[in-house]
């Protein structure tokens, strides 16, 4: 395979995208036994095609499968790794809930978790795609630990499992994987070993790897970036009103930034100008050739129409500013 050349300021998503209303209905009916597995699989595939076409129509350079098969990012992985069980759902904010898993037995890699997702996406998309993998630290932080002697031990066990998944993705030809670690900034005293665990998860994986962190204090993570073996950091900034964007100046020069310019928890659609000026401010302090443009976080909590419109605006603003930038775009190297 040849390397992938991207336009300057490539646009991408963080991962999740709202499920079509009909898919939600199919999944509901499936639980009551009104659909069989094969029909649900067909619906999931169709949903991926639908949300992929939303992203392509909006002009996204690097789309994802919208995580259509995943109810929730930690839950999905925990369901596919041996040693987890589930209790009733717990609330995460407002009336949003998730099924927080509990580790009750030694963890066990039971075979690939998301490779199948990537294979299908590749078969229906002729653009470079992004695959997301929930990071070991976040899985550990968002689980109840009833088995391992410490959270650290649990995290490293998870890192070994995620590493096998990363290698399976490389093997399958995935060009670009993003490790999602939204929990990373929450316990600064654990960062030392958390970064080590993430490095273990990406060890000997030669494809492009990014990491997504959101809704936390990034200043805690910056000092560790030098050690971290991923090439991109995708961060939320719109939700915080672009406060403290100056912090990116402290990022090491070998790291790209995925700049979050769209608020995913607010139904109000940004204007092209708002996004344009946010990017403009960013390229004054951060080199455009190392900059990707994305929403703050996964889009799944938004109504689908609004998500699509937000992506369209994001692309429009990015295209507007591209004319003012002389840098070449980044290249994704294929091993």
């Amino acid at each position: 395979m040849t390397d992938i050349s991207l336009p300057v300021l490539p646009t991408t998503v963080i991962g999740s995208y709202p499920r079509p209303a009909w898919l939600r209905k199919v999944l509901r009916l499936w639980k009551t036994g009104k659909f069989d597995k094969e029909q649900v699989e067909e619906a999931l595939n169709d949903a991926v095609i639908s949300v992929l076409s939303d992203q392509v129509e909006a002009g996204i350079d690097i789309p994802s499968d919208g995580e259509q098969r995943r109810d929730e990012m930690v839950e999905y992985f925990a369901e596919r790794i041996g040693g987890f069980k589930f209790y009733d759902p717990i609330r995460i904010w407002g009336n949003a809930y998730y099924r927080k898993p509990a580790v009750y037995a030694p963890l066990e890699y039971r075979g690939s978790i998301v490779v199948r997702e990537f294979m299908f996406l590749k078969s229906v998309c002729n653009k470079p795609v992004k695959v997301t993998v929930t990071g070991p630290y976040t899985i550990a932080d968002w689980s109840f630990n009833e088995y391992y002697s410490s959270k650290e031990e649990l995290t490293f066990e998870l890192a070994k499992i995620i590493n096998r998944e990363m290698k399976a993705l490389e093997e399958a030809g995935a060009p670009y994987v993003q490790i999602d670690e939204p929990a990373l900034s929450t316990h600064p005293d654990e960062l030392d070993w958390a970064i080590e665990a993430i490095n273990m998860a990406v060890n000997n994986v030669r494809i492009k790897i990014g990491m997504h962190v959101c809704y936390g204090d990034y200043s805690k993570i910056i000092p560790y970036l030098e050690k971290l073996r991923v090439s991109q950091l995708a961060l939320e900034f719109a939700n915080r009103g672009f406060k403290d964007i100056g912090i990116v100046k402290k990022m090491p020069e070998d790291k790209e930034l995925g700049f979050g310019v769209i608020d995913v928890h607010n139904k109000k659609i940004e204007t092209t100008d708002e996004v344009y000026y946010a990017i403009k401010r960013m390229i004054e302090i951060f080199p455009a050739r190392r900059l990707y443009i994305n929403p703050d976080c996964g889009l799944k909590m938004l109504p689908r129409k609004i998500a699509k419109e937000k992506m369209r605006i994001m692309v429009e603003a990015t295209r507007k500013i591209r004319g003012e930038v002389k840098d070449d775009g980044p290249v994704i190297k294929i091993p």
Partner: peptide, 14 residues
């Protein structure tokens, strides 16, 4: 305003 983490939890407040 926006959603912010409540202390060090995976729980968020407006």
């Amino acid at each position: 305003g926006g959603l912010y983490r409540f202390l060090d939890n995976n729980f968020y407040y407006r």
